[in-house]
Amino acid sequence: MKQIALIRHGITKGNLSKCYIGKTEEPLCEEGMNELLLKKESGSYPFAESIYCSPMLRCQMTANLLYPNRELKLVPDFRECDFGLFEGKNYRQLSKDPLYQQWIDSNGMAPFPLGESREEFEYRCREAYKKVIKELYQETSFSDKERDRETVKGTNKEANKEISKETDNKSDAVLIVHGGTIMAILSAFATEKKDYYAWGCGNGNGYLLSAMEDGRLEVIRKI
């Protein structure tokens, strides 16, 4: 069984203002970068064989801070939802907008005006996730082969101790994405059934999971 991590990007200026930030390209703010580095130093983030990433700037910056000098596999369909007319605005700015009230009354299921519907967003995220899982199960990494050989040999006890430590906080892949992307994936594939919004997590947080070949996910721990 493969092990993956879903990690939400670090904080941006728009996140601090609680704005709808979807297609807008925002860099991480200083607070966001500092927070990620502190969590990294504490050992929160797992070792990763492969790193998949939304193409949005905030996700690529997060990936480069947490996993420097690593190849990023960019997945266009992991990008955040297009919030349409709500883009770049927060609840206070939208509170008197009748279109926003209609969207609230729909429990978030109506399409964003001139943007995406949740159904469209969920579909593209989930299809992209299924392709990642298929790719992971088709590949056997060089490091896995080396680890297996060391285990069979059993001649280097110190090396095996290091391997054991590494696998305690290891993943076959890390997906650095958006809050909405995480909710779309887990609400469909997690074995623990929860509402879409119940899978939300803060910036720089996420989940370490066991991923079955059919895509189903079991939560190991929160990140």
Rank of each mutant, 00 (worst) to 15 (best):
130 K>W: 02
130 K>H: 03
130 K>P: 00
130 K>Q: 10
130 K>N: 05
130 K>A: 11
130 K>C: 04
131 K>L: 04
131 K>E: 14
131 K>P: 01
131 K>Y: 02
131 K>V: 04
131 K>Q: 06
131 K>W: 03
131 K>T: 03
132 V>N: 00
132 V>F: 01
133 I>E: 03
133 I>Y: 02
134 K>Y: 05
134 K>V: 05
135 E>L: 00
135 E>W: 02
135 E>D: 12
135 E>F: 00
136 L>M: 06
136 L>N: 03
136 L>P: 01
137 Y>C: 06
137 Y>E: 06
137 Y>R: 09
138 Q>K: 09
138 Q>W: 06
138 Q>R: 10
138 Q>S: 10
138 Q>E: 11
139 E>R: 10
139 E>H: 14
140 T>V: 12
140 T>Q: 08
140 T>K: 15
141 S>L: 10
141 S>T: 15
141 S>F: 12
141 S>N: 13
141 S>Y: 09
142 F>T: 10
142 F>C: 09
142 F>W: 12
142 F>R: 08
143 S>D: 09
143 S>G: 02
143 S>P: 00
143 S>K: 06
143 S>T: 13
143 S>N: 07
143 S>L: 13
143 S>E: 14
143 S>A: 07
143 S>R: 12
144 D>L: 12
144 D>S: 10
145 K>D: 06
145 K>C: 05
145 K>P: 01
145 K>W: 07
145 K>Q: 08
145 K>R: 14
145 K>E: 11
145 K>N: 05
145 K>A: 11
145 K>Y: 05
146 E>H: 06
146 E>F: 08
146 E>C: 11
146 E>L: 13
146 E>A: 12
147 R>F: 11
147 R>Y: 13
147 R>W: 12
148 D>R: 09
148 D>P: 02
148 D>M: 07
148 D>E: 14
148 D>H: 08
149 R>F: 13
149 R>E: 14
149 R>V: 12
149 R>I: 14
149 R>P: 01
149 R>S: 07
150 E>P: 00
150 E>A: 15
150 E>Y: 12
151 T>A: 14
151 T>D: 08
151 T>F: 13
151 T>R: 15
151 T>M: 13
152 V>A: 14
152 V>Y: 13
152 V>F: 07
152 V>G: 07
152 V>K: 11
153 K>A: 15
153 K>D: 11
153 K>W: 09
153 K>I: 14
153 K>H: 10
153 K>E: 14
154 G>V: 04
154 G>T: 03
154 G>I: 05
154 G>N: 04
154 G>P: 01
154 G>Y: 03
154 G>L: 04
155 T>I: 10
155 T>K: 14
155 T>H: 10
156 N>G: 00
156 N>F: 00
156 N>S: 01
156 N>Q: 04
157 K>S: 06
157 K>N: 05
157 K>A: 11
157 K>P: 00
158 E>N: 04
158 E>G: 02
158 E>W: 04
158 E>M: 04
158 E>A: 07
158 E>I: 08
159 A>G: 00
159 A>C: 03
159 A>P: 00
159 A>F: 00
159 A>H: 02
160 N>C: 09
160 N>Q: 15
160 N>T: 14
160 N>F: 07
